[in-house]
Write a protein that binds this DNA or RNA. Structure first.
Lengths: 210, 210
DNA sequence: AAGTGTGAACTTTTTCACAGCT
DNA sequence: AGCTGTGAAAAAGTTCACACTT
């Protein structure tokens, strides 16, 4: 990952974790917290947490701690999730259908604007309000709406969607196919994820636990 | 993550990537590869790749390179995926239903043996051959089959599944609920993943790209 | 000649420890 | 008095560069 503002990728991941844990704390009506307590809930070192937060700004009060609400808001702003982002989908698969009907994503500000598929039978379908287009309608869709993030769910030929999306100047890709993608250009950000890879990490752990 | 055999977590993730890319190379009938070429396809430095592989063993031939087939096999063995792993599911959600019908996971050696839910209406259902039990049947299931990994998909009360699974001595958890979990015990491995978190990483990147 | 495997150099990240604010 | 924010120290991870094998 390209480093932005000198922020290490692990720090970014931790900031997202803090945000999520703060969200939970707020739901539980906890109004203030110290770095020690928050760090404990995130499974990390308190100094690490304070150092991480220092990338975002001076968010706490010395001698006191952090306001849950205000820390959460500052992280939200820093992470870019006070605003909404428009997504397109590459590949109508069971995973794609799951994502399209997932309320949590739109609640979090991630909206699917269109989906693409290569199977004739799927073109023209409307899934949970989202239309399915053929890939040669990409131009049309990119002209009609602002697109921020491309999500690739196809397994057979995921690279075709990647190439098409990059050709249209998309800068952020979530690749959910089983083979990870990499590009040289550090103006392009690709997140690779698959359940198989996550489970493989656990498998390694189990294998070497003995 | 607890470090096993001094293997850094990033190295583990990269080893899984190498494995996946080798799998693709093999499918494309490529029989041999150098660290330089493989590294390029994985978006990393060749020295890094060789150093990573040195954790696994002496897998290449000096002056020649690596055999795709044998390197892939050695990684597979090291990662623990030459063997099969038994999974249980916590929470019958749309994501759970997707996972239960996902062929790729069983192909990779990850088998769902049982699912658990707290809604009376779901108990007794059979989804893609997997029975849904209530949580107080956990004892019975753990006695009946070897369980290796617990996958948590519930959103409302994910921690109830976590506690129940850990009580039954499960050592590996894939948490797909939106709030990450952490435990002190380094004999227990928890992987936290959510689509929202992945998309948030991309959102940060887009926000700070300007 | 070519490319691996690896100590050594370098870079980055984490942790410590305390000055400084409330 | 208590807890943050942060330079400095320590640890970890990455890259270099070359000895060594085929």
């Amino acid at each position: 990952m390209a480093k932005i503002k000198n922020l290490p990728e692990n720090t970014l991941e931790r900031l997202i974790i803090y945000f999520k844990v703060l969200d939970l704390l707020e739901k539980n009506k906890i109004e203030a917290i110290s770095s020690e307590e928050l760090a404990k809930r995130c499974g990390i070192n308190p100094a690490q947490l304070r150092k991480d937060l220092s990338f975002v700004g001076n968010l706490g009060t010395k001698g006191v701690g952090y306001s849950v609400k205000s820390l959460k808001y500052n992280l939200k702003k820093f992470l870019g999730i006070t605003q909404e982002w428009n997504l397109i989908l590459g590949g109508i698969t069971p995973l794609a259908e799951y994502l399209l009907q997932n309320k949590a994503l739109s609640k979090a500000g991630f909206y699917f604007m269109a989906a693409f598929d290569r199977k004739e039978a799927n073109i023209g379908k409307i899934i949970n309000g989202v239309s399915v287009y053929s890939l040669d309608q990409l131009d049309y869709v990119f002209k009609a709406v602002k697109v921020d993030i491309g999500v690739i769910t196809e397994e057979e030929t995921p690279e075709i969607y990647l190439e098409a999306f990059l050709k249209h100047n998309l800068k952020a890709i979530l690749n959910l196919s089983s083979v990870p993608f990499f590009v040289e250009d550090d103006k392009i950000q690709i997140e690779n994820f698959s359940f198989e890879m996550s489970l493989t990490k656990l498998s390694f752990f189990l294998k070497h636990l003995a």
